[in-house]
Amino acid sequence: MTYHAKVITGGKIVIPADLRRELGIKDGDSIVLEASADGILLRREDPDAALARLRRGLSGYSVDQFLHERRADWGE
């Protein structure tokens, strides 16, 4: 289904109620907007999924590696 929204003052967009219900978006929820080749992708930010993505991104990254990179940034 296609939904339409208008950008109002301050760049705010009101997500249509039907779409919010369909996606399970409630007051106070975080959403993620991503630029894509076709436009903007909007998705509900599931805290568990966000944590899993973060863990995947950091897997194999050690404190030693972090410190080595920071020391290189500082010229040590």
Rank of each mutant, 00 (worst) to 15 (best):
M1T: 15
T2C: 00
Y3L: 01
Y3P: 00
H4I: 09
H4L: 07
A5Y: 01
K6H: 10
I8N: 04
I8L: 11
I8G: 03
T9M: 03
G10R: 09
G11Y: 06
G11M: 08
I13K: 02
V14Q: 08
V14P: 00
V14I: 04
P16R: 04
P16V: 05
A17C: 00
A17L: 03
A17I: 09
D18S: 05
D18W: 01
L19M: 15
L19A: 11
L19C: 10
R20G: 05
R20V: 01
R21A: 08
R21K: 14
L23D: 05
G24V: 06
I25H: 06
I25S: 04
K26H: 05
D27R: 04
D27N: 07
G28H: 04
G28Q: 02
D29Q: 06
D29T: 13
D29H: 08
S30N: 15
L33H: 08
L33A: 10
E34V: 12
A35K: 15
A35V: 15
A37P: 03
G39T: 10
I40N: 10
L41G: 09
L42H: 07
L42C: 06
R43K: 14
R44D: 02
R44M: 04
R44H: 15
R44K: 15
E45F: 07
E45Y: 12
D46E: 12
D46A: 05
D46S: 14
D48S: 08
D48T: 09
A49I: 13
A49W: 03
A50T: 12
A50R: 14
A50L: 10
L51Y: 06
L54V: 07
L54R: 14
R55N: 11
R55D: 07
R56D: 06
R56M: 00
R56P: 00
L58I: 09
S59T: 14
S59R: 10
S59L: 00
G60D: 01
G60P: 00
Y61P: 00
S62L: 03
V63K: 06
D64N: 13
Q65H: 04
Q65M: 12
L67D: 11
E69R: 11
R70W: 09
R71N: 13
A72Q: 09
A72H: 11
D73K: 12
D73I: 05
D73M: 12
D73A: 10
W74F: 09
G75L: 03
E76R: 10
E76D: 11
